Simulated assay, not measured.
Amino acid sequence: MERYQAELHAAGEEVSPLCHADQLAARIAEFVERRLAGEGRRRSSRAMPAPSRACAIPSYGTSSVPRENAVRAFLAAHGVADAEGRALTLPACIDGLVFERLPSGGRVSEPEICGLVEAALR
């Protein structure tokens, strides 16, 4: 779990609030690919417990704070009125796609991620 949190933190630190939507989507796609392939897939499987168990793991709820901060800064820099709310929604949507694809070994396409980033910017 600690390595997973470190990766989330590093991903959040990489995003400049001034980057373009396609750059953010590309960085998210790279991160998601790392989470769904090889060792990253195994770590993601361990780090994403069954929803019924997640509430019993105190650190699980705080693992996404650094990336939410980065998303919030990105959205605010692009003039999104509800940057706070959408900074929670966008990562949750990405996590949902990862959680859905994890058991089957599927992938999340960059166009899917671009669509979510574009929706967050509206």
Rank of each mutant, 00 (worst) to 15 (best):
Gly96Ala: 09
Ser45Arg: 08
Glu110Gly: 08
Glu112Tyr: 03
Ile94Met: 09
Arg101Pro: 06
Arg122Ala: 12
Glu30Ile: 02
Pro91Asp: 11
Ala81Ser: 11
Thr62Gly: 01
Glu100Pro: 00
Arg122Thr: 14
Pro58Phe: 04
Glu110Gln: 15
Leu8Gly: 01
Arg27Ala: 12
Ala77His: 15
His9Lys: 06
Glu39Cys: 02
Gly105Trp: 07
Ser104Arg: 08
Pro17Tyr: 11
Ala11Gln: 13
Ala6Lys: 14
Glu110Arg: 14
Ser109His: 09
Gly105Tyr: 05
His20Ser: 15
Val80Thr: 08
Leu102Phe: 00
Glu13Met: 13
Gly38Trp: 06
Met1Ile: 09
Leu116His: 11
Ser16Asp: 13
Thr89Glu: 12
Ala119Cys: 12
Gly40Asp: 13
Leu97Thr: 06
Ala87Cys: 11
Arg107Tyr: 06
Ala92Gln: 14
Arg67Asn: 02
Val71Ser: 00
Gly61Ala: 10
Ala92Met: 14
Leu18Glu: 15
Ile28Leu: 13
Leu121Met: 15
Thr62Phe: 05
Val98Gly: 01
Glu112Met: 11
Glu33Gly: 13
Glu14Cys: 07
His9Gly: 00
Pro111Ser: 09
Ala81Glu: 13
Leu90Thr: 06
Glu14Gly: 07
Cys19Leu: 11
Ala25Pro: 06
Ile94Trp: 08
Leu90Arg: 01
Ala119Ile: 10
Ala83His: 15
Glu33Gln: 15
Ser104Cys: 08
Ser44Gln: 09
Arg86Glu: 05
Met1Ser: 14
Ala54Gln: 13
Arg46Val: 04
Leu88Thr: 02
Asn69Gln: 14
His9Asn: 03
Asp82His: 08
Met48Phe: 12
Pro58Gln: 09
Val117Met: 12
Arg86Lys: 08
Thr62Ser: 05
His9Ala: 06
Gly85Ile: 05
Val71Asn: 00
Ala77Leu: 07
Ala29Ser: 14
Ala6Leu: 12
Cys114Met: 11
His78Thr: 10
Ser45Glu: 08
Ala70Trp: 00
Ala76Met: 11
Leu36Pro: 02
Glu84Trp: 05
Ala81Phe: 12
Pro103Phe: 06
His78Cys: 10
Pro49His: 03
Ala50Phe: 08
Ala37Thr: 15
His20Asn: 10
Ser104Trp: 04
Ile94His: 10
Arg101Val: 03
Ile28Cys: 05
Glu33Thr: 15
Gly40Val: 11
His78Asp: 10
Phe31Met: 10
Gly79Lys: 05
Ser64Glu: 14
Cys93Gln: 02
Val80Asp: 03
Glu33Tyr: 07
Gly61Arg: 08
Thr62Gln: 07
Arg3Thr: 04
Glu33Ala: 14
Ala47Pro: 11
Ala54Asp: 02
Thr62Asp: 01
Arg3Gln: 07
Asn69Asp: 12
Ala87Phe: 10
Ala26Phe: 11
Glu13Asp: 15
Ala77Glu: 15
Val98Asn: 01
Glu84Ala: 14
Val80Pro: 06
Ala70Cys: 04
Arg67Ala: 00
Glu7His: 10
Pro111Ala: 09
Glu33Pro: 01
Glu13Ser: 13
Phe74Cys: 06
Arg72Gln: 07
